[in-house]
Design a protein around this nucleic acid. Sequence first.
DNA 1: GTCTATAGACCGATAGAC
DNA 2: GTCTATCGGTCTATAGAC
Lengths: 210, 210
Amino acid sequence: MNTKEMILEEALKQFSEKGYDGTSMSDIAAPLGISKAALYKHYKSKQEIFDKIIEESEIKYKDLLEKLSVHYIDNSKKLSKKDLDVYSEISAKGLCENVLTFVRFSMTDEYSKQVRRMLTISQFQSSELGQMYTRRYVEAMLGYDEKLFKQLIKAGVIKEGNPKTLAAMFYAPVIMYMGIWDREPERAKECEKSIKNHVEQFFMMTSNRE
Amino acid sequence: MNTKEMILEEALKQFSEKGYDGTSMSDIAAPLGISKAALYKHYKSKQEIFDKIIEESEIKYKDLLEKLSVHYIDNSKKLSKKDLDVYSEISAKGLCENVLTFVRFSMTDEYSKQVRRMLTISQFQSSELGQMYTRRYVEAMLGYDEKLFKQLIKAGVIKEGNPKTLAAMFYAPVIMYMGIWDREPERAKECEKSIKNHVEQFFMMTSNRE
DNA sequence: GTCTATAGACCGATAGAC
DNA sequence: GTCTATCGGTCTATAGAC
């Protein structure tokens, strides 16, 4: 890995722990064994480092959701042919697994964790960051789940109901437990179990098979 | 209002906007028309100002929940006699109103808003602050709702189900929409409506009257 | 692309006059 | 309880040698 990338990696680590204002250029340079002056040969300011981290994370996050078949930005579009094929026959159990995979990755992957923490403590710094936070950590999954439930209702897999409300009832508790998990890592096991219980019971409650 | 209190008020305002590290003693002093040296006659350090704000907010938040009959710290205790009297005969509609009152106050009251923002961006600064955030903004209402649903199930008002899961499905979406509301105040009306829709549909879905 | 040195501003906190 | 002045330190960022 070259110096330019190592700087972003170290900066992200520290921004996520101490925030933007709590992290100095010297703090970033020291662990890399270079002087802070050297940083300015790669980035013209501290703000540029922060912006680059955000920019890069946006790309990586889209890639991740793409892998999980969650189409993130294009909320206006309908579900793709592929999605319909995959989900029209999916079982509730399969959906649980899908969500749990997403949660486990988000919570254990060091990079995801650092970006989420950094965005959490920076969400009020500008309206752009606030909107990005909402879009990334709330609406991406919520919009997807909404369309999914619409399909599942149509297919008769789950009971009648407003897909948007169902999506919120399904996904909001997942966000909530992930928040506890982030703040109190010692409760990781407990949170994972709560999420598992929640998704299972959600599908028991909404399933048409009684 | 005396100077000591005005300092806390101004500090909270700025901490909630720019964070602890982003706010200097001069920043706090200037709007009050005093020098930063004067601050040190009232508080021995910047950290002490922060701690006092947290301490005071804890008391005020307990008072607020007390008014709403939500007993916050004592999660081990059973619901009080008063609670049982009030809620054993309460209608789903009444419960909706109760939640909406809480939400509207939390989101429009300037002090509540500032404290919540400050805690949100400070939640990773120490494990104590993280725990406080969870306890205050998640578990207080969640634990209360859990007991409440237990009662409502027992009384036959709503359908069978795990009270803890039900509480999460009921309250987590409220937290989620409040988060959007905080980050994007221009969406306030939309969020309020979403919360209203959610609580109404939740009781429609879980009610025993079909 | 790295370093040392430094500019210039600002930081938290203190001393002492009034 | 307020002020001005100041301390010692850190901050972002730059200059210039190698």
